[in-house]
């Protein structure tokens, strides 16, 4: 395989990764809804540690564990943000509807 073949392979993998990351993000959003319903905080440090341990334990390389950790830290940061946006929009909606109720 020449350099163009490898680059095509990378492009294919990127699209798979993108699909997987979005699937993962949808899970985080669902969790955001549940957390909001149950009044749980968005940030759960023990769960984040668990995720990092899970991926580094199962890492078979060639990525080093530190590299895997840094990559997943970024994924976790974005999931946390996705959850926060869900919870915030739900809070805004609920305050809007209570404002409307007061107006009536």
């Amino acid at each position: 395989m020449d350099i163009d073949d490898w680059r095509e392979e990378i492009d294919r993998i990127d699209l798979e990764l993108l699909e997987l990351l979005n699937r993962r993000s949808r899970c985080a959003i669902e969790i955001g809804y549940i957390k909001h319903r149950m009044g749980l905080p968005i940030y759960s440090p023990s769960r984040e540690t668990e995720i990092l341990e899970n991926v580094t334990r199962n890492n078979r390389g060639p990525l080093e564990n530190d590299a895997v950790r840094r990559l997943f830290e970024r994924i976790i940061d974005e999931s946390r943000r996705a959850e926060r946006l869900v919870v915030e929009s739900l809070k805004e909606n609920s305050s809007d509807s209570s404002d409307a109720a007061e107006g009536n």
Partner: peptide, 25 residues
């Protein structure tokens, strides 16, 4: 410690920031 790092992340979230963590060597 991991706990101290968590406390900073929690504080940043409370202040309205999105925290992005990067663990170096």
């Amino acid at each position: 410690t991991e706990e101290e790092i968590s406390q900073v992340i929690e504080k940043l979230l409370k202040l309205g920031f999105d925290p992005y963590r990067s663990t170096g060597a």
